[in-house]
Design a protein around this nucleic acid. Structure first.
Length: 281
DNA sequence: CTAGGATCCTGTCAGC
DNA sequence: TGCTGACAGGATCCTA
């Protein structure tokens, strides 16, 4: 679930709360959620690779964390910092039914919650991080990629719908279901368009839109996540104020007023303006 | 090699 | 009320 902007928001939050702190104990409540051998030490760095986080420790080991669809990281210390899959339980008493791993720190506790158990924490030597089978395959993030590079990849997957192509982290890194829909809306391209139908200029505007959409979300302090449950416990309007099309089916397109429609593309729920987004051919 | 569909798992919601 | 199927902010595996 969390896409690049949410994971970056989590990274910044954790940087504030667990950097230089020592992990004193790790409790694995669900074996599937923790790969490798738990390891204790001081946090020396918190890095992000696409949608994955890597917590480096001073003992030459690292903890790679991938939240997948429903992962949450909630730090409970003097104050609580919660981010990840949005839900009411950000304010729950923890651990709860969805808590899979508990990392104890000197001054607080980090809970890894994950309803569907698709996410995981993986312990590995820090030196092996660049060779990790997931991290190794990641493509560049949109702001680091040239239009020529993207265009070449689109040609390589010319028969796949463009939405499926930009969800593939080995082609372009960071987009998930929300930002893919938002990006394609911004550039007025229908998600079912074949990737090969995009021109080099389309590739350029896609990169630009993807960068802007994700950067805007990061800049708003993870409006999509961290502020979802406000201090008083009420729900924030994290998607409402951000999304132009995502989960806005039945509502008017912000550009032209046509009703937004939900369809299915590449096996995922997909939101479009049928007037602004035409199928390229 | 690419493309498309099933699959991992739990929870919620719409429809009967 | 209780059941059923569809679906979910991701990625991998299997098949054609």
């Amino acid at each position: 679930m969390p896409e690049l902007p949410e994971v970056e928001t989590i990274r910044r939050g954790l940087n504030q709360f667990i950097m230089k702190q020592k992990i004193t104990k790790i409790d694995v409540l669900c074996a599937k959620s923790f790969q490798g051998t738990p390891t204790l030490g001081y946090v020396t760095d918190i890095r992000r690779f696409g949608k994955a986080l890597v917590v480096d420790l001073d003992n030459k080991n690292s903890l790679m964390i991938h939240l997948r669809m429903t992962g949450q990281l909630i730090y409970d210390g003097e104050e609580r910092y919660a981010a990840g899959h949005p839900s009411d339980n950000f304010t729950d008493k923890l651990p709860n039914k969805q808590t899979r791993v508990i990392l104890e720190f000197e001054n607080g506790t980090l809970f890894f919650n994950d309803q569907r158990k698709f996410g995981f924490i993986r312990a590995l030597p820090t030196a092996e991080v660049p060779n990790d089978k997931f991290i190794k395959k990641l493509a560049k993030e949109p702001w680091s990629m040239t239009a020529d590079e993207l265009y070449a990849k689109l040609q390589k997957h010319k028969n796949s719908p463009i939405k499926a192509t930009i969800l593939d982290q080995t082609i372009i890194c960071g987009l998930g279901n929300i930002y893919a829909d938002e990006t394609l809306f911004e550039i007025g391209i229908h998600p079912e368009s074949k990737s090969g139908a995009l021109s080099p200029k389309d590739a350029e505007s896609l990169l630009h839109a993807a960068s802007e959409v994700m950067q805007k979300s990061i800049d708003s302090g993870g409006s999509t996540m961290a502020t979802y449950v406000k201090a008083d416990g009420t729900k924030g309007d994290y998607l409402e104020k951000f999304a132009q099309v995502f989960r806005r089916e039945g509502k008017p397109c912000p550009k032209c007023g046509t009703e937004i429609v939900k369809i299915r593309v590449a096996g995922r729920g997909t939101h479009i303006c049928p007037h602004c987004q035409r199928i390229l051919s």
